[in-house]
C-alpha cells in the first residue's frame, strides 16, 4: 500500500496575525512556517502504520502545492520520516486550485490511501481533501479520528456530531483526518534531519487551472472590551450579570 499525505505550509500557531498593502495581504514578515498541525498528525500515523504493519505499507509520500519557499516544510516532513516528497511549483490560490493540482500530479501514481487534514490553519478552507477525492473519483471518509490497516483492509473511525462510526472503505480513497489519529506529532531526530537531505524532493510544474474564489481583503476582529472582574467573595453578582446584562442565562 502506498500512502500520500497532503501537507499545507502554515504560520506557526502562535503567530500574531497582521496584514499589509491596505489589508489585502497577510504579513509574512518574521513568520515561522510549520507543517499544518493536522497534516503532522497524519504523517505521524502513516509512519506508525508503516512500522507496525509488517511491510503492508510500501511508501509514505508527502505533497505540497507551493513555491520554493515551502521546501523547508517538506524537508521537515522528510526528516520526520516520509520517504519522498513532491512539490507542485505554484502559488496556491484556493482549495479548488490546490486540489486540482494534487490530483493531476498523482492520478497515475497508484496511491491507495491519501490523507489530508480537516482544515488548514491559515485560510481554514476545510476543502482540499474532499475536492481531491472528487477530482480523482474515489471515496472520501471525513472527520476521521483513527486509522488502522490490516493487510489490504483499512478501518477508520469517523466522528459525527454526537457520536462516531466505524467505517470500511474500498481502495484507493481519501481520508480527511482530525484529532485522534495520533496523539503527539513526531519530531525529527538528528539522524532524520541528516537523511532528509538525501531523500528525493520532486518538483512538478503546474498545469492550467482556475481558482474559483479570490481573497480580496482582510480584517482583524474588533478589540474586546475589558473583562469585568467580579469579586470572588460575591459570586452571586456574576450570575446576576449573566442574567440581567448579558442575558445568556
Amino acid at each position: 500500500m502506498k500512502i500520500l499525505i497532503c501537507i499545507s505550509n502554515v504560520p506557526d500557531t502562535t503567530t500574531k496575525i497582521r496584514f499589509v498593502n491596505d489589508n489585502t495581504a497577510f504579513d509574512t514578515n518574521g513568520v515561522q512556517w510549520i507543517i499544518n498541525p493536522w497534516d503532522e498528525l497524519a504523517l505521524t500515523r502513516a509512519l506508525e502504520l508503516k512500522e507496525t504493519t509488517g511491510g503492508a505499507i510500501e511508501k509514505v509520500t508527502v505533497i505540497n502545492v507551493g513555491t520554493k519557499d515551502t521546501e523547508p516544510t517538506l524537508r521537515k516532513a522528510l526528516a520526520i520520516g516520509a520517504d519522498d516528497a513532491i512539490r507542485v511549483n505554484t502559488e496556491p490560490k484556493d482549495a479548488f486550485f490546490v486540489a486540482y493540482h494534487i490530483s493531476e500530479a498523482v492520478k497515475n501514481e497508484g496511491y491507495d490511501m491519501i490523507i489530508a487534514g480537516i482544515d488548514s490553519s491559515d485560510y481554514n478552507g476545510a476543502a482540499v481533501g474532499g475536492m481531491l477525492a472528487e477530482f480523482l473519483g474515489v471515496p472520501s471518509v471525513s472527520s476521521v479520528s483513527s486509522i488502522d490497516v490490516e493487510g489490504d483492509n483499512v478501518s477508520l473511525k469517523r466522528e459525527i456530531d454526537g457520536g462516531s462510526e466505524v467505517i470500511g472503505t474500498q481502495l484507493p480513497f481519501v481520508a480527511i483526518i482530525q484529532k485522534g489519529v495520533a496523539i503527539e506529532p513526531r519530531i525529527p531526530s538528528m539522524r532524520g534531519i541528516m537523511m532528509a537531505r538525501k531523500k528525493p524532493l520532486n518538483v512538478v510544474e503546474p498545469v492550467e487551472a482556475d481558482a474559483l474564489t479570490e481573497f480580496v481583503s482582510y480584517e482583524l476582529p474588533q478589540a474586546k472590551a475589558a473583562c469585568k472582574m467580579v469579586d470572588p467573595e460575591n459570586v452571586k453578582e456574576l450570575i446576576n450579570l449573566l442574567h440581567t446584562e448579558a442575558k445568556v442565562i
Binding site: F19, D122, Y123, N124, E214, V216, Y218, E219, P221
Partner: peptide, 11 residues
C-alpha cells in the same frame, strides 16, 4: 481565517 484570529472578504 487563521482559526478565528481574522476575517477575510472572499469573492
Amino acid at each position: 481565517v487563521f482559526t478565528g484570529k481574522a476575517f477575510a472578504n472572499v469573492v
